[in-house]
Amino acid sequence: MLELNDITSFYGKTPIIQNVSLEVPEGKCLCILGRNGVGKTTLLQTIMGLTTRMTGKMMINGEDVSAQPTHLRANAGLGYVPQGRRVLGKFTVRENILLGTFARKDDNRAIPDSCLEMFPYLADNLEKRAGLLSGGQQQQLAIARALATDPQILLLDEPTEGIQPNIVAEIEASLMRLNKELGITLILTEQHITIAKKMSDLYLFMDIGRVANHGKTKDLNDKLIQKYLSI
């Protein structure tokens, strides 16, 4: 369960996200929607503690993490799949997944079987340098790395951006499985409304750093989509 209460977040001295409140119950999937540049990525970065500063209150499973730096938030149960994947190119696939285990609560440094089972390509190429993987493979690695943290809440920033369609379906399927079978709470940003409708329980529209509208995905209608997504 993730709660944000009146969060304002800054890059330098400029507030980018303003007075955002949201609540994602355990095991649900929230999709953050909005046009380019409205602050979707910054909202996820704020949750990870990667912006310069934030005010307001943020709770993970009832634990107040508002004042915690990034690495402690990761320890508290957040897994992060950032925009552009940002796998460590000089590390091997194995080392990248191993990096994820540093955020675990237990000190288990073994690569979880579930990661390898879900992404067989990675399992076969553990010693390959991550920089040599294709975009789709890097995205799978980024998800595997986040899963290795044993997260309760997984933040995904445009997980299907710039990836060929057959891999998109594959990634979509694995995310659904994480959410429905393993009960991991998902928060993702998305441009494709079809994917959002298919995967999420809740939606949230952003507009210029604020929450413009939110609700249950089944209540999402074309009028809202027209209002907040069309250019």
Binding site: M48, G49, L50, P69, T70, H71, A74, N75, Y80, P82, R86, L88, L99, G100, F102, A103, R104, R145, T149
Partner: peptide, 9 residues
């Protein structure tokens, strides 16, 4: 930033 996001201080 990525290192911090995965629990490294």
């Amino acid at each position: 930033e990525m290192a911090a996001s995965f629990g490294i201080d």
